[in-house]
Design a binder for these strands. Structure first.
Lengths: 224, 224
DNA sequence: GAAACTTCTATTGTATACAAAGCGCAAAGG
DNA sequence: CCTTTGCGCTTTGTATACAATAGAAGTTTC
């Protein structure tokens, strides 16, 4: 993390997630090097990692752009994530330690607190949600699975659209997490996998709804 | 492909697949740079890609080693591949074009020729097998799925162990491919997915068997 | 004799200069 | 007016020099 390339990686990644680097925008190494206060070498390093994680893509002639996913692309990603995280939940159900179980409960408790207030703290929700899922992947104890999921889970568009999730959706996530915990308590891998896959799938539809209303809001109204 | 970093990537990758760079061996950038006839810069580039694809790994202090997978790791990888390629087959079943179908038939025909002879041509088998699976992934038309699978399919150990597959196993692959083609002809996604997942699973056991006899051969015999 | 500290060396990380390659624009010709 | 070709400029690729760091080995001190 203290290496220049790590700092560049985090900084560029945040710029993409926050929308500071817009989807579809061309990326110039020199420019990012100045922004990050390092030379092009570590920036190139960071860009290769971000490329492997599908945050950015390169065209035929080596120019790089911030990834811009269509709704179909996203459904695709959610489908794959549902499969893989379902599998992770199944493995975790029969492997998870008591410590990890307690950590999951703590995260979901904090998630509920963030969501329950009149104006939900979406940023806190996202963070606790991320950690909740990360603990399960860790408990699944499969390095390859973890590697694959790291390439699917964080998607800039989703991150930004989450700001428009309504509270009911956020509360549903909390309840579904609770059901996953129940499945873990029984060490029931089939139950855990089913709930997890459904949870991800439902989250996709929440996203799609928020995305649609987002688009409506963002577009100028044709007639008054 | 003509860029130095691409050449370095292919060369290093082949050295790993062929066993010229042994599993677990430490990798030195300078040394590879000399071997590939380029400077360290493109070598570093290639190493980052290979790291993302799990061919090599780095320890805490940034030193890199050729990945050395245990049998459990491999079962893990095969399980994931079974899931993902099953999904790919399902998608391909309802999307594949006639041209792609013909290409699949051609590859499987060539595969049979390579296998049918008294001394099977394992290298040709591997190549036609690889192309057969690649066409299906392409027909699935999911960029993310393709990206994930590229990180799972080629495994050095498997590649080397394949030399010891017996002909019966290779013929089975051909027959299973033929059944996948039948499922495609009917556009039956469930059938296609089932056969594909089973095919990968069976391939794992073929590998495990070959691996075991490999180990026996390699070890010195205790008593005569 | 053991432990810790220091120094040395092997290796990776970073900066920078230069090379190569693509893209756009402009000019010329049909 | 459209198309094509060539030139220049922007951007990325590569080499190399230097910096930093981690690991090993040796020495010193208790």
């Amino acid at each position: 993390m203290s290496r220049a390339s790590d700092r560049a990686y985090n900084q560029i990644r945040n710029m993409i997630l926050s929308g500071q680097l817009a989807a579809g925008a061309q990326i110039r190494e020199e420019h990012l090097a100045e922004t990050c206060g390092v030379s092009r070498t570590p920036v190139r390093d960071a860009l290769r990692r971000l490329e492997a994680e599908l945050f950015i893509r390169r065209n035929d002639s080596q120019r790089t752009f911030v990834a811009d996913w269509s709704l179909e692309d996203l459904e695709d990603a959610f489908t794959l994530r549902g499969m893989l995280e379902g599998h992770a939940a199944a493995r975790a159900a029969v492997r998870i330690s008591d410590v990890q179980l307690q950590a999951l409960q703590a995260e979901n408790g904090a998630l509920r607190v963030a969501v329950a207030r009149p104006a939900p703290d979406v940023l806190a929700f996202l963070e606790h949600n991320r950690r909740f899922h990360a603990i399960i992947v860790e408990a699944a104890a499969s390095e390859k699975l973890e590697n694959l999921l790291s390439r699917i889970v964080e998607q800039p568009v989703v991150w930004r659209t989450a700001q428009h999730y309504d509270r009911e959706n956020l509360m549903r996530s909390w309840r579904e997490h609770d059901e996953i915990l129940a499945a873990f308590a029984r060490r029931d891998e089939i139950w855990a996998a089913s709930v997890m896959t459904g949870h991800i799938r439902r989250a996709f539809h929440s996203y799609a709804d928020a995305h649609r209303s987002d688009a409506v809001v963002a577009l100028p109204v044709a007639a008054e």
